[in-house]
């Protein structure tokens, strides 16, 4: 039986928790990707790697990753992007809250529909940041800014493929599936 054939709840029951190492190193990798020296228009459309990995772990390891982690990672992103402390934190916490509430629903869909749901979450996170900055007197950075959440959502499938298969392999090795 493939894990995809199971209902989300059954999948949850059957699976071992992902290793802390995998969670840590995937988050670290996402952070490294996001601090690459991006510039110009590329920077505007830069996908939020940290957010998508965070959402992945919120959906798949809801017991260890949640809003506290989102807040902490958001603060780190604020420092590294030299933004006002708390902006990313608020955006991430809002997106993770959405993921927690909609988790069962989202996981019951196949990947394309999941991506569409994720788009809603990433757009919400971007709008939070945008609204905060406009409130603080910044100019609208251009419509390329709205490309970023789309690219971020499109990363859902690759992230699943990268991280979920790792988790499944681990489970198979330990004989749980």
């Amino acid at each position: 039986m493939r894990p995809a054939d199971l209902t989300p709840v059954a999948r949850d029951v059957m699976k071992l928790p992902a290793s802390a190492g995998l969670i840590f190193f995937s988050t670290l990798g996402a952070f490294l990707l996001s601090v690459l020296p991006w510039s110009g228009q590329w920077m505007l459309a830069r996908p939020d790697f940290v957010l998508i990995v965070l959402l992945f772990w919120t959906m798949n390891e809801p017991r260890s990753i949640g809003q506290g982690m989102a807040f902490a990672l958001g603060l780190l992103m604020d420092v590294s992007d030299s933004m006002l402390l708390g902006q990313h934190a608020l955006a991430y916490v809002a997106a993770v809250f959405g993921a927690q509430v909609l988790r069962v629903r989202i996981l019951s869909f196949p990947l394309p529909e999941q991506t569409l749901h994720l788009l809603g979450l990433t757009v919400a996170a971007s709008l939070v940041t945008l609204a905060l900055n406009l409130l603080l007197g910044a100019d609208f950075p251009g419509f390329a800014y709205l490309v970023s959440p789309v690219v971020t959502a499109l990363l859902w499938a690759p992230v699943n493929w990268l991280l979920y298969s790792g988790a499944v392999r681990r489970r198979r090795d330990s004989g749980a599936v």
Binding site: V35, S39, S80, D81, M83, A138
Partner: peptide, 9 residues
């Protein structure tokens, strides 16, 4: 080192 990755500033 790099341009600050912040579209607003």
């Amino acid at each position: 080192l790099y341009t600050a990755r912040n579209p607003f500033t």
